[in-house]
Design a protein around this nucleic acid. Sequence first.
DNA 1: GCTTCTGAGTTTCTAAAAGCAACCTAGCAC
DNA 2: GTGCTAGGTTGCTTTTAGAAACTCAGAAGC
Lengths: 169, 169
Amino acid sequence: MPDMRPYSAYDSDTCSIARTLALIGDRWTLLVLRDVANGVRRFDELAGHLGIARNILASRLARLTEAGLVERAAYREPGARERHEYRLSGPGRELMPVLVAFMAWGDRNLAGPEGPPAVVRHAGCGGAIRVSLSCDEGHELGERPRLRVEPGPGSKVRSLRLARAGRRA
Amino acid sequence: MPDMRPYSAYDSDTCSIARTLALIGDRWTLLVLRDVANGVRRFDELAGHLGIARNILASRLARLTEAGLVERAAYREPGARERHEYRLSGPGRELMPVLVAFMAWGDRNLAGPEGPPAVVRHAGCGGAIRVSLSCDEGHELGERPRLRVEPGPGSKVRSLRLARAGRRA
DNA sequence: GCTTCTGAGTTTCTAAAAGCAACCTAGCAC
DNA sequence: GTGCTAGGTTGCTTTTAGAAACTCAGAAGC
């Protein structure tokens, strides 16, 4: 494992977005997860489909496995030796809203006039999937919601707003 | 504008996820957008808060401005010359589900025992925000949904599944 | 029992991007 | 006209990504 140093650079504060990005926020990792979620599970398939360098793919898969987002599962095809493939684990599948949200944004903002290049459906019923924000007062938030961020229970620093206001104190 | 080459590398197919990642999927851009969304709007504030190199910040802001995710707005404080700040535009605000999904995942999977470091609230009513997937048959999908991807109207290639099945044809 | 094939990686070397610090610039204050 | 400040550029170094060749293990063919 060559470049497995702690990915604790650029965590501005203890923000969950920064922490998550430190784990999966590089150029390839989300595409690897997208492919694994889509059933592309084997090293050479992933390398071929993504066009990623093999050493980079190996290091990304090692990181994802170590972090528990994908699992390495043994399989054996008739007349071949045992090999391994990669599958999403539970925490990996919890990233689906991230992938769907990326896809929805791209569909709205970057797709050509023909429409979105792919559609996600509920595996159970075949209904088209959408991602939405709602609040626990029961409001459905629209496409361009207005949000506010506050420090939470695990906050170690003052909120952005407070930090900003106090900068010259 | 030094490194503004077309970010069309690594688009495996025409996938909206890949297109979106090509625009905002580097180490810093989502953190820049998070900070801008949180009211950190000025160059030096962003540089200081994120700990990002100033040339990288300049190039990310240029890309985001060019792509229409943020807008450069003039302002003038009394006794100072005119300056500019950065604000989320409409398409930029449409990225909120992405940021909230990242944050939710980090809260569940990477936060310490004290709980999430920050909480997002509906600016209108103060209710805590959550992100969810649902299908147009009315089903609410849980934390670890099972999804299926199909080629859409804008598809130029066969689906992943078809491409995989046909590999040795 | 030696050679070949294949999937799944490593190793090595080169190119591109990120990081850092110092420098520039426009306009106001003095 | 000197200094201050926000908002960047420039130039150089370090890190990361990429391409291609190499390794390794077992199954198969000869």
